[in-house]
């Protein structure tokens, strides 16, 4: 079995109307043996930006620490918060630095991006394990249930969903994809991000 499937786990992000959502499962396993059901793989970067790191669990922790360090350095030097677009480039170059000995992680980002007009626009992006960026307009998925997530999301997602409807859409997409994946599941967490607040909810789902 591939190293990408070693610990299991999946992440999805979706765009809505003046909001974005990012969600993941909570399982940490070693092949088919489940170790814990509270292994978070989505982390806050700023008040309006989250990054999800599905893949090899050791690299989840390592990259999370790496990103926290680099974002802190950016914030201190620039005396301002990092924008999602900029952070996506930071993620990309951090991964490409290890082009021939990669971190086994496929990051997913979701946040609200400042516009020149002074407002905020939804932003999502994902990369592969060596940092090839994908700026999708609808949704991005990654992890062991990615195929299933693609199928359900393609069927359920529609443009311009309000925050509460987006929450329902991403939750249903995630839960139903997880139930068909042996390596993901054991609980789930959803973050819905708007320009002035973040709503985080733990989902009750199947625990098998």
């Amino acid at each position: 079995m591939s190293i990408m499937q070693h610990n299991g786990g999946s992440v999805i992000a979706m765009v809505g109307k003046d909001c974005v959502a990012i969600a993941s499962d909570l399982r940490l396993g070693v092949q088919s043996l489940s170790i814990t059901s509270d292994f978070e793989k989505i982390f806050p970067v700023t008040d309006r930006l989250f990054v999800g790191l599905p893949g090899l669990a050791t690299d989840v922790t390592t990259l999370r620490e790496q990103f926290r360090y680099r974002v802190n350095m950016y914030t201190i030097k620039e005396e301002r918060e990092i924008e999602p677009q900029t952070f996506a480039q930071l993620v990309s170059s951090t991964l490409y630095e290890r082009r021939f000995g990669p971190y086994f992680i496929e990051p997913v980002m979701a946040g609200m991006q400042k516009t020149p007009a002074g407002g905020y626009a939804p932003f999502i992006a994902a990369t592969d394990l060596i940092g090839c960026l994908n700026f999708a307009k609808d949704f991005v998925v990654a992890g062991t249930a990615s195929e299933k997530l693609f199928g359900v999301a393609e069927g359920l997602w529609e443009p311009d969903l309000e925050a509460e409807d987006l929450f329902e859409t991403i939750s249903q997409t995630l839960l139903n994809a997880l139930d068909r994946d042996a390596f993901s599941g054991w609980g789930a967490v959803v973050h819905v991000i708007t320009k002035d607040k973040v709503i985080t909810r733990k989902l009750k789902g199947r625990m098998d």
């Binding site: 070693v30 170790i35 814990t36």
Partner: peptide
């Protein structure tokens, strides 16, 4: 804390390593 040689770290209420883990968990 449960930790393996990859550097995977998880805080847990109980844990096991080795073949015994298949019974004890």
């Amino acid at each position: 804390y449960w930790m393996d040689y990859f550097g995977t770290l998880a805080e847990v209420p109980f844990a096991a390593h080795g073949y015994g883990s298949y019974f004890t968990l």
